Simulated assay, not measured.
Amino acid sequence: MHPARTQYPAGRGYLAACTLGLPAIATRDAVRADLERWATGTATAADYSASLERSRGHAATLLGTTPDRVATGSQVSVFTAVVAASAPAGAEVLCVDGDFSSMVAPFLARGELRVRHVPLDALADAVGPRTWLVAYSLVQSATGELADEASVARAARAAGALVMVDTTQATGWLPTDRLDADIVVCHAYKWLSAPRGAAFAAFSDRAIAELSPITAGWYSGTDPWASCYGPELHLSADARRFDVSPAWHAWAGAEPALAFAAGLDLDLVRAHDVGLANAFRARLGLEASDSAIVTWPDETGCELAALTAAGLVASGRAGRARVAFHLWNDEDDVELAADALAHRPAPLVVR
């Protein structure tokens, strides 16, 4: 059992970190305190901004960079749209077949980009001289597969292409502080267990220089409180130029969540999570993997229904049952899930 399990009193049988994380006690308390301050009229914009800046620092730690290279926002798709809007007309964007829509849709919506989709294991080999950007999720949402990010980075650098990586299904259980990428985006409501609406992204020098801050607003200046009104355009020189006006209440909970995650040894978290996932895979007769997410075919939904009937929280994606193991889980959760599937009714055979 990971020592952090005591911070998650509702963790037993919760196998859905890949869908929605559970708040730690400190995060729950922070959200409750924020609601009380708001209700009593004692919440202030200055306090929210200070919390956001502390969160920016924790996000920088998780992504292995400095706060001046981190932008804050509310959704991965918004950061992706910034990149898509900056692509030259006709540019080639290389994506993974079946990747999450937030990493694909903004490029398709441009209508004038050449968007190619290839299997995950063919991504590095598919990079060519026409590739402007390689965009992919480090861990695939539907399957839990991990990308070979080092190979992709080498191929992209050789071709002069930008690299964009979504770590929403990775940061929190997998170390993401050594990625070779120009844009790293993450929504913190899954493995980082923050409230939904708190997202962040790290930008390289090249990305800061070449991408257009199309979401610029009052929070994209060096000092947001001096950037509230026109007619001038107020843009920070660093990654803050890509900031989106913060969803204050989400960041009140995100600050303790990100602080907690940034203080963990994520190599040990990975060993814990993957160890439980592989123990479950063994019970199902599946090969071991390097992912904390386990998926298997479930076209009829019977597998997910059996887990749900046993009081477990799991999910289904793309015709597959999906479970995930994280800090609040232990060997008992593996046994509960395996037993639920062992006792599921036999599938109905129609002759």
Rank of each mutant, 00 (worst) to 15 (best):
C95P: 09
W191H: 15
R56K: 03
T168S: 15
A305P: 01
A202R: 14
V184F: 11
L146V: 05
W132L: 04
E112A: 04
R130V: 13
F280H: 00
D243N: 15
T222G: 13
A279C: 03
P23M: 02
R116P: 04
A43T: 09
E303I: 00
G73H: 11
A84G: 08
P347F: 01
D333S: 03
A207V: 03
A150M: 04
V118W: 06
V244M: 04
D177M: 01
W225C: 13
A314V: 10
A292D: 04
V334G: 06
T65C: 01
T168M: 12
A279D: 12
G64F: 04
A89V: 15
D97T: 05
D223H: 09
A60M: 10
A89L: 10
D148I: 07
L120E: 02
G311A: 05
R116H: 06
M164I: 05
R154Y: 00
V134D: 07
D166I: 03
E149H: 14
E335N: 00
H234S: 07
A216S: 12
L20C: 13
V70Y: 06
L284M: 13
D205I: 02
L336G: 07
L276P: 05
R56I: 04
E255C: 09
L174G: 00
G275K: 06
K190A: 06
A142F: 14
L268N: 03
E287A: 14
Q7D: 05
L22I: 13
